[in-house]
Design a protein around this nucleic acid. Structure first.
Lengths: 253, 253
DNA sequence: TGCCACTTAATCATCAGACAATTGCATTGA
DNA sequence: TCAATGCAATTGTCTGATGATTAAGTGGCA
């Protein structure tokens, strides 16, 4: 277990808040668990020993465990101790858990799973958005795309704009469960831009696809929006596929 | 804030575990928040006062707040206090949060959102399952359906079997993010059987639709499975629609 | 042998109280 | 008007003790 950097809500609150001990412990332990450093079924050292080894108070450590428990990663019982739960119980849709997954080397299998989810959800969401979007949604989408054009996808601002666009589409559906998928979809979107950052490949311009989706949503054409989004995600998957197979990755995570 | 009953992982751990104080506080506070008793932006009483009022120690109360914070419901800062976050930040895909939502009167808008999600995800999942299911998955599905037939849907066992079937379909996709949606989809499934329990309406037999899905998955026909699942969910939505509009509900939650 | 009630010890759960760190806000001064 | 400063409220962290739960062992008994 090591550093503590990360963009999850635990180790670093939403806007530059200082790291709290329970948060950093939860982050570090969470990363250790999802990366397989502690296997499901394994039992963590007891609170006293572990908190001592981590050089923190028992209460701070316990709060960290509560966080992990709330996300389904561990389960505590008297006498038995705190054990890592079966992977099936992990709440993968939790933004922090997902962030912890991608803190290290992205798992190609999970990455593929995320793309599959995008391919299922985003076209349908685009169709719904085309029917329900309000002017404010269109404004957000337009500005996000313009920001993408201005920045490009080889930097953080551009990637955030990309994610903002996809978020806005989900938001425009007015469907709360779909909106909650934003962080998951966003992780998938980010994967594209990270994997694709291989310089030796021609960086296909993603903007035309994006604008097609936007135009369809703006025009109120559900099926056109669905088709355009399908094309967009498919293209992203194609661009990423080879890198995924090889498990390759570039610097900026 | 009142009782503390519930089937979430906080107030009652997986298998008859006794309720822990931090869990019951998290449950009660969580229900109070999602039911609008505390509005987003509102600030909770400070730890000392509130824990005193709740008759629990400050540490137990703090652990409860950590749980809520991990699920995105609240945010704590020194000096400011602990405030309820914007609803957009709530992790609706978290099994506990969803359970808390439906602890009281189900919100028709949310219920509709869940059906929409089912209509998007489940047909696609059925198609994937048809391609990838293993014999073990088919066994689980078959047994779940037989259990459904044996019990009917007007009791807890039958409803659990129903959910087990839908879970198994997601499981068979081998897609981790989709599997994590099981609890969310399950909540949607449960809604059907709860809303539909109006005795004066003819209880359409749901089994043929279910068997059609099963047969298609077993036969390895993706498109047949997709179509059958679409039909199943659509029918469930139709059956539920009127009750949803009227916001009616029956006893057993 | 096989089974049940009881004991035991390990671990988490809860409590109480103190002190530290953060931070929004008022106050002050230029 | 605005920036620097100090204050006070609140959460954050620490310490140490006691209670509750429970898996596993123990012994009696049929």
């Amino acid at each position: 277990m090591a550093k503590t950097s990360g963009s999850d809500t635990q180790s670093r609150r939403r806007s530059g808040n200082p790291a709290r001990i329970h948060g950093t412990i939860a982050h570090d332990l969470g990363v250790a668990i999802v990366s397989g450093q502690y296997l499901p079924g394994e039992i963590l050292p007891n609170e006293i020993d572990f908190s001592e080894r981590l050089k923190v108070s028992r209460s701070a450590y316990r709060e960290a465990v509560r966080i992990l428990s709330a996300k389904g990663l561990v389960e505590s019982r008297p006498k038995t101790g705190t054990r890592v739960t079966d992977e099936r119980n992990w709440n993968l849709l939790d933004p922090d858990v997902l962030a912890w997954y991608f803190a290290g080397e992205p798992d190609p299998k999970l990455a593929h799973g995320l793309f599959e989810l995008r391919l299922i959800v985003e076209p349908a969401a685009a169709a719904l958005a085309a029917e329900r979007r309000k002017p404010s949604h269109l404004t957000i989408m337009r500005e996000a795309l313009m920001e993408m054009e201005r920045c490009g996808l080889d930097n953080e601002d551009g990637r955030n704009a990309d994610r903002a666009f996809h978020d806005a589409v989900l938001e425009a559906t007015g469907n709360m469960p779909l909106m909650s998928l934003a962080s998951t979809i966003g992780a998938g979107v980010r994967l594209t831009t990270v994997y694709k950052a291989r310089k030796d490949e021609l960086p296909r311009d993603p903007m035309p696809d994006h604008w097609k989706v936007f135009d369809a949503i703006a025009a109120g054409g559900p099926e056109e929006a669905r088709a355009a989004m399908t094309e967009l995600v498919s293209a992203a998957l194609r661009d990423t596929a080879r890198a995924l197979e090889r498990g390759e990755k570039t610097a900026t995570v």
